[in-house]
């Protein structure tokens, strides 16, 4: 057992080092798109917590495994290992401790989910209809119909999604959130853009031949610019 204690100390040090290494690797590979909505901050934070947990658990298993493989390798002898059937205390420990992690993630995810999907009293509504293979946006306020989604910055937005043919999915990677549009019903997705810029809406539900090309331009503009654009649209309709 004293020997085991020495092994555990060495392994623990290695786990700490390896956790940091794995996190660094994942952080370098899993490159998130720029964040352009208010909801992205909590989502990215939760994402980051997950990556730390992944790095730690990966390090935990891999370090113990590789350590065992080196220390307990058969050195040319044909003998057997220690005759030991298990350890109930350990089994209970590694059943119960993960439960703590599960509960932690369940609780913070639920709170966050309700937080980022909560309706806002003065949300600005745009209808988006997915069709094979393009998007059509209708602004109920002005009656404008466009192929480009123009949104005012710092305003809570609700997109009402419909489809008249097959399933589509509203996804702007910079906005993080995602929602299917389903024929026969209206679905909703909510977000608050907080960065002026040009983005691309990408259909994320396989919808037939040109699914990969089902894109639409998204422009988040300042409040003034949006009002200008809006009045132009109204003027066009009245012509």
């Amino acid at each position: 057992m004293a020997n085991n204690r020495r092994h555990f100390v060495i392994a623990s040090v290695l786990i700490v080092i390896f956790t940091v290494l794995v996190y660094w690797l994942l952080d370098g590979v899993l490159l998130k798109p720029e964040a352009a909505v208010v909801q992205a901050a909590p989502i990215d934070n939760l994402f980051d917590q997950h990556i730390w947990l992944i790095a730690f658990l990966f390090a935990l298993v891999v370090v113990f495994m590789c350590y065992a493989l080196i220390v307990f390798r058969a050195r040319g002898d044909e003998g057997d290992g220690e005759h030991m059937h298990g350890n109930t205390t350990l089994e209970i420990a590694w059943t119960v401790i993960p439960c703590v992690f599960v509960i932690y993630f369940a609780v913070i995810s639920t709170t966050m989910l309700f937080d980022i999907t909560r309706p806002h009293p003065d949300e600005y509504v745009v209808n988006a209809e997915g069709r094979q293979w393009s998007w059509l946006f209708t602004y109920p306020e002005s009656g404008a119909i466009t192929q480009e989604l123009v949104l005012p910055v710092d305003t809570p937005i609700r997109i009402d999604l419909t489809s008249d043919d097959v399933l589509h999915n509203f996804w702007v990677p910079e906005f993080r959130v995602k929602q299917d549009s389903v024929p026969g019903k209206t679905t909703y997705v909510r977000f608050t853009p907080n960065k002026v810029g040009e983005y691309v809406l990408r259909c994320a539900e396989l919808c037939g031949l040109n699914h990969s090309g089902m894109l639409a331009a998204v422009r988040v503009v300042s409040r003034d610019e949006f009002d200008l654009w809006n009045s132009e649209q109204i003027a066009q309709i009245q012509e």
Partner: peptide
């Protein structure tokens, strides 16, 4: 949770063996 049990039990199997 049950998946974790498997991983840890596999480590327990290797630990102290002659691999």
């Amino acid at each position: 949770i049950p998946t974790g049990v498997k991983f840890f039990s596999w480590l327990g199997t290797m630990w102290g063996g002659k691999i």
